[in-house]
Structure formats: structure tokens, C-alpha cells
Design a protein around this nucleic acid. Structure first.
Lengths: 250, 250
DNA sequence: TCGTATCCTACACGCCGTTCAAAGTTAGCA
DNA sequence: TGCTAACTTTGAACGGCGTGTAGGATACGA
């Protein structure tokens, strides 16, 4: 066994930190991101509120850590979904990523609200931007896909007249370094795809589709098929690891 | 003067109710929907919290009234935008509605969060559904547009195999009564358009586009043009009452 | 004038984040 | 083994927030 007793104390501490985060996310999933409370977390852990200050100096620090965690996990999930398909099949990759995005949002509404929902009442985002960096990373998954699809994509997308000056300098430098051949319109396309995925998911997570449609997944799948079709149809649309995209389950 | 003193008391009451709502929405725009507090409203009005209980029996009643107000105002705004274009020009109508939706969301983030954001922590939605009825109404604007565009829309949309059984019965009866000729796929299309509009708007309102793009409006306008093009291009795309859709302002 | 609707003060009860001294617990070293 | 230093947790307290309730003053409407 490697490291049988590396440092028992540190191990306990790491476990406690993990438990704090898990319970915090659970509470947010139950009552919204605004209901996060150190006292409630401590109560559920069988501790007192003051004890949590051994792990986080302040409530905002905990929130910041949670946000960073969620961003990196989401990026990981999406990229894992992307690589279930070969790089030569951007349509299939987009389909997989889209399905994974929705599944993650529905399975983890607390995380989704924390990152994409209302700002938490008293919370001040720390300046500097570990968080904004991580955010760009999530969008980076789409950039990878578009980078492959762009050369062979059917036109119609290229109609918009985007220039590099339309983007934020910091974001721009990251993009130009990682994807040197991408034109501005391709970057804009990635963001537009992101928005298109996000729309139906946000509506569904917040319960705005339920009063009208029985299974919102079907709507989302139709939208996804439209997207993949426009990005260059893939031959393996309907037999991916996620199953038939029109399936009814969930 | 008409009605010089119809009932001075009732007039004052109505004014006070309006002031309560206005201040409540202002507070929500500033600090998120979760920060709504009777005490804060009363404080700003120069009153005490207890005094508000003459107007609303409980905090949830105030929230319910606000939600109903917001829904009806939004439906009004969207339909007003729709009728700036002739009914024979569904593309133009969709463009106008899309621009109005974004403008409303950006100008009234408090209202947007209240309706489309995180659920308010302690709030229990009243059963029965004046609210859900109003919600369907907002989507009804899109149904009106699709109803006109559907017969002449280019195919590709029609590929999905929607049946009436895919929809919520209550919603379904409303739709079939008001739009007897619409097929199921057209109704699904309306919802998908809604989602497509909603996505970029939600991302922008919550500040998720700012770190990447300088003016999110441009992205949204490109998306809108795509939509209108697919719905049957309109000859008056670029000179509507909202100005050039690619304009940079705001 | 009399009733009523409004608004106030004051209070009850509970929640929150945060701090602090004291007590408990563990790790590492002599 | 025993001692010491570091870490963790407690329990109480502070100051503030919130909803909701009760009783009394005040101004309006008839």
C-alpha cells in the first residue's frame, strides 16, 4: 500500500473539507444557492458553527472554493463526454457534450444554480480571476469542437462579420494561443452554441418547461440534432454511448 | 376634472401598493430576488414593517403579486413588440420580439431573476395556477408568430416527430383552442425558439458573456438573424423600430 | 359623531456570520 | 514514556437580520 499513514491529521482534515463541501452543495440543491449557511452545515455535521472557521476563514471563502470546484468538475465532465467520440466527428462530440451538459445540470441543480443562477446575496466575487479563468475553460470544450468542425462546416455561419476587436483581450489571447487557425466568427459561433445549449437547460432546471411539455429532453434533443446537423452531420448520431438521443428516459 | 375625490382613501391605497411593488422590484434588481424583505421596503418608504401587513397578509402574498405583475407586463411588452410588424412578416415579428425580450431582461434584471431565476428561499408557490396560466401566455406570443410562419416555413423543422401526447394536457387544450391548425411540431418549435432566445439572454444577464465578448448584443443579434432566416426571411430585417440589430449600443 | 382603515411602537422568536477564551485532542520530539 | 506545541472544537456572546403579532394613537369617510 502506498502511503499507509501519510499524515493522519491531514487526511481527516481533507475528509472534513470534502464533507463540508458536499453538505453545502446538498443544501443548495434543496433550497437554492441563497440558503447556504455555515450554521446549517455545521448542524448537519454535528458540529458548531465556529468549528468551520478552522477550515474556511469566512463564508465567502467557502463559496469561492465551491464555485471553483464546480467549474473544474463541469469542465472535466464535458471534456470527458467530448472524448467519447473521435476528433474527426465534431458533430458527434457536440452531441455528447450537449447531452452531458444537460444531464449534469439536472443531476446537480445546486451546482448549476451556484454557477449559472442568481448571484448569492452577500457574496463578493474575489477580484483577480481564478473563477473567470475556470469559466473560460468550460467554454473551451466547445472551442475544441468548433476548431475541428470549422474548416468543413457548411457556410451560413460565416455570414457574420466578427473581428478580433469584438472580444475581451484576456479571453482573446487564450483563444489565439490555443487555437491559432480559428477566425473570429468561429469563436463567436462557440459562444452562440453555448447559449443555445444553455437556454433550454435553464428553462427546464427552473421548471419552466414542465407546465407545457411532458419530457423536456425531447425538445433538447431536437435542438441538439439541429446543431450537429449544421456543424457537419455525423454518421453515428443515433448510437452513441448516451443511447438514442430521442429516448424518453429522464 | 373627472373624479376629483372618487375615494381619496382608495386612491392613496392604490398608490401605496404601487410604491411597495416598485421598491420591491428595485431591491431585487439590486441584490437578487432572495434579498426581498418587508423591513427593507418599509424602511425605504419611511414606514415600519408592520404597516405593510395592511396591504399584504404575508410576505409570500407580496411575492405572488409581484410574479403575476411581472408575467403580465412581460407578455404585454412582447406582444407590443410583435405588433410593430405586420402579421404577414413573421420573421420581422420574431426579430422584434427577440430584441424586446433581451431589452426587457437587461433593463429589468430584478424582474427577470424573479421569474426566470432561482426560486425564492422560503416561498411556496400557491397551488392552482394563475401564475402558470400567465406563463403560458408569454410563450403564446411565439405561438402566434409560428402560427403564421408555419405554413410557409422551409422544412427541416418538420423533421421531428412530435405528437399531441407529448404535451401537458392543460397547455394542450389552450393551444388547440387558440391555434386549431397548428401541428404538434409547430408547438414544439415555439418552445425551442423560446429556449434559444432565453439562453444567451440568461448568460448575459448573469454576466457570463462579459468575460469573453465585449458586446453580447452582437452575439444575440446574430442568433436572432439565424432564427428569422430559418422562419422565412423578412425584407425589413435591418430597419425595424429597434434600429439596426447589429448596432453596438448597449 | 362614530366606525374603520392605516400606521406606529414594541415585542416575541428565530435565523445568520463572526469572534473569543477555554477545553479537548492529536502529533512529534526528547 | 512524558512533555510540548499545534490543531480542533465547544459554548457563549455580540450585533444584526428577518417575519409576524398585538395594542394603541391618528386621521379619514360617512
Amino acid at each position: 500500500m502506498e502511503d499507509p499513514t501519510p499524515r493522519r491529521r491531514d487526511r481527516l482534515r481533507a475528509e472534513t473539507v470534502q464533507e463540508i463541501k458536499t453538505i453545502a452543495l446538498k443544501h443548495m440543491a434543496a433550497g437554492g444557492a441563497a440558503t447556504l449557511s455555515l450554521r446549517a452545515i455545521a448542524r448537519e455535521m454535528g458540529m458548531t458553527a465556529g468549528a468551520l472557521y478552522s477550515y474556511y476563514d469566512t463564508r465567502d471563502d467557502l463559496i469561492t472554493a465551491l464555485i471553483a470546484d464546480v467549474y473544474s468538475i463541469l469542465a472535466e465532465v464535458l471534456d470527458a463526454a467530448r472524448t467519447t467520440r473521435p476528433a474527426e466527428d465534431p458533430g458527434g462530440q457536440l452531441l455528447a457534450v450537449g447531452l452531458a451538459y444537460r444531464q449534469w445540470a439536472i443531476n446537480n441543480p445546486g451546482e448549476f444554480q451556484l454557477v449559472y443562477g442568481d448571484p448569492i446575496p452577500g457574496y463578493q466575487v474575489p477580484q483577480g480571476g481564478a473563477a473567470s479563468f475556470a469559466e473560460r475553460q468550460a467554454c473551451g470544450v466547445l472551442l475544441k469542437i468548433v476548431a475541428v468542425a470549422w474548416p468543413r462546416a457548411d457556410l451560413g455561419w460565416a455570414a457574420d462579420d466578427y473581428q478580433w476587436s469584438d472580444f475581451e483581450p484576456g479571453f482573446l489571447s487564450m483563444v489565439r494561443e490555443r487555437f491559432p487557425e480559428l477566425p473570429p466568427s468561429a469563436v463567436a459561433l462557440s459562444l452562440r452554441i453555448w447559449g443555445r445549449l444553455h437556454g433550454l437547460i435553464a428553462l427546464e432546471v427552473y421548471g419552466h418547461l414542465r407546465p407545457q411539455v411532458l419530457n423536456p429532453a425531447k425538445l433538447y434533443h431536437a435542438e441538439l440534432l439541429d446543431l450537429t446537423r449544421a456543424l457537419g452531420a455525423s454518421a453515428t448520431l443515433n448510437n452513441g454511448p448516451a443511447g438514442d438521443p430521442r429516448a424518453r428516459e429522464l
